[in-house]
Every structure is written in structure tokens, then in C-alpha cells.
Simulated assay, not measured.
Amino acid sequence: MATASQPHTLGNGTKKVLITECPRDAMQGIHRFIPTATKAAYMKRLLNVGFDRLDFGSFVSPKAIPQLRDTAEVLGLLDSVPSATKLLAIVANTRGAEEAVRHMHVDIVGFPFSVSETFQQRNANSGIAQALETVKQIGTICHANGRTPLVYLSMGFGNPYGDPWSPATVADYTGKLVAMGIRHFALADTVGSSTPDAIASLYPYLQDAFPDIELGLHLHSTPGAGREKLIAALDAGCTRFDTALRGFGGCPMAADKLTGNIATETLLELLDERGIETGLDRDAWAAAQWYSHEVF
């Protein structure tokens, strides 16, 4: 199976930015069920764009995320699509990981690990101690089946619940996960609590503390605040971003309708301004943008 690729340096010394497109995040909070065929048609268009990864679905309880109850069926409709884009599925427990690795086209298995005890309970119905053990088991399942485990450091920039938080806290949990063999991470701003200053300090702090990991950013934001966060992240050295077309998305467990994923369009505009390479097919991207009106 494909493994997560490392950003490479261009001739001018600028690293290529790798993008994970997140239609799963964009769809999961929509109450109207999106037909399976429509989901698959949208994913096919996104696979043509050339993103590094496509966060396409999740193997979780349909009671928790009813919109994604057809993830396996969607995946079956994508089997014939030739694409170098790696497919990423989200799981909440070992049962989900076992189901994910049964599908040969799933390359990466993602698990949202919250550094907030309250949100870990809300999001996965388990505490942090249990979540650490779950990550260990998911890692074992992935490595035994040639897949890449990816851990989201959820609530990485603080939380609204009053749970203890500090950069050292995030680093401490990251260290525990690294000791389990996890090497792929996304520092996640689950509720849009990050600021440019926080990104500028926390991202390099973690990257310097763990130079051998792959560290991306999964940023949520209220409308209008995303661009400055992206600027701070690029200036801090981040070369891997999770975004969603038209800025849809967000976590249904966070209950803030204004806090969606940062729009892929915003990131691409900024990268174009800076002359940073993405390798994306912009015609295919335009086709996906057009079709997104059928989905949303």
C-alpha cells in the first residue's frame, strides 16, 4: 500500500506544500443524507485533482455520524479511479481500524486523540488513558497490515471546557504516542481556538521537539480568520495542510456552526501568491468546485 510521502524541496529552496482535502469533514455535520452516488461522484472529481491525501470517510458508528454510514459503499465506487492520492479513513476505536484495513484501497487510518479529557469523552466516549491504549492497538493493526496510522492532536490549541492545556501538555502526549511507534501527526484546531501567534509558537515547538515525525496542521476557523492562520503556519515551516473545498466542515461534537475547515481556495490563493508549488490539476479542481454545488 502507499505510504505517506515527505514534502520535497524545490529548486528555490521552498518546500512543496502537500494538501489533504477533507470532504469527510465537510459532509459529516450535514443532516440531509447525501446520496451515496453523489458522494462518490464528488470524491472521483477530487481524486483527479492530485491532492496528497483524500479524507474520504470514516468507519465509525452510524449512530454517531449517520451521514457517513455508507463509507464502505462509497469506497467500493472509487475502486476503479486511477489516482496517486492516498485514501484516509477516520476511526474511533479498534473495531473501526479492523474494518478500515480490510479495504485494500485505504492507505491511512486516522484517529482523533484529544489532549482535552472532556472532548475525548464527547468525541469517542472514552477518556485519554483509554484513548492512548486504543492508539497503541490501532498502530499494531495498521503496521501488521501495511497501513499508516495517523493521529490528530485534537484540541491542540486549547479547549473551551477549562481542561488543563499548555504546549508542554501537547508535547507530553505527543511523546507518549511517538513511543508507541506513531510517526504521522496532525496538530488539530478542533474549535477554531488557535491564533496566528499560537500557531507560530506551537508548531515549531513540536517539530523541534520531535524532528523525526511528520507534522501537519488541521485548522478550523470562523469565516475571515483562516488566511492569517495559514500565513502564520507557512512562516512557521508547515508544509502539510488539511483543508476543505468552500470551507465546509467542522466537528459535530463541537457544536459551533461557524467554525468550519479552512477553505482549500484560501490556501491555494496564498500559495499562488508566494509561488509555492502544489502540483494540483487546476482544471480538475475547477470541475470539483462546480460539482460541489450538487453535494452541499
Rank of each mutant, 00 (worst) to 15 (best):
N93F: 10
F119A: 07
S61H: 11
V81E: 03
Q121D: 14
Q121H: 13
D107C: 06
V109K: 05
P112G: 06
V106M: 10
A72I: 13
V109A: 11
D55H: 03
G127A: 11
H105A: 12
F111N: 05
R122I: 14
R69S: 15
V115Y: 05
T118S: 14
D70R: 00
D107L: 06
I90L: 08
L87N: 02
L87D: 07
A97N: 06
T85S: 12
E117T: 05
M104E: 15
L87G: 01
E73M: 04
A84Y: 03
P62Q: 10
E98F: 08
S61I: 13
V109Y: 10
S83A: 10
S116G: 04
M104Q: 12
K63I: 15
G127R: 10
T118L: 10
A89P: 08
S83L: 06
A64D: 11
E117M: 06
P66F: 15
S80F: 00
G96L: 11
E73D: 11
H105Q: 11
R69D: 15
L77Q: 01
P112M: 12
G96T: 10
G96K: 03
L68I: 07
V101Q: 09
A97D: 12
E117I: 00
G96N: 09
V101C: 13
A89I: 07
S114I: 09
L54K: 00
S116K: 03
E117P: 00
V115W: 06
V109I: 15
I108G: 06
A124C: 14
P62V: 11
R122D: 15
T94W: 04
L54A: 01
L75S: 10
P66L: 15
G127I: 13
V101K: 07
V109C: 08
S116Q: 01
I65V: 11
R122H: 12
F59P: 01
V115P: 02
S80D: 04
R53Y: 05
G57A: 13
L77P: 00
I90R: 00
S114N: 04
S83T: 04
Q120I: 09
V109L: 13
L88F: 01
P62C: 12
P112S: 08
T71N: 07
N93M: 08
E73I: 05
S114A: 11
V115K: 03
E73W: 03
A89D: 12
V109T: 11
L78W: 06
E98V: 13
E99S: 10
G96I: 09
H103G: 11
H105Y: 03
L68G: 08
T118R: 04
T71I: 08
M104A: 12
Q67C: 06
R53G: 02
S83P: 02
D79V: 01
F113I: 02
N93S: 12
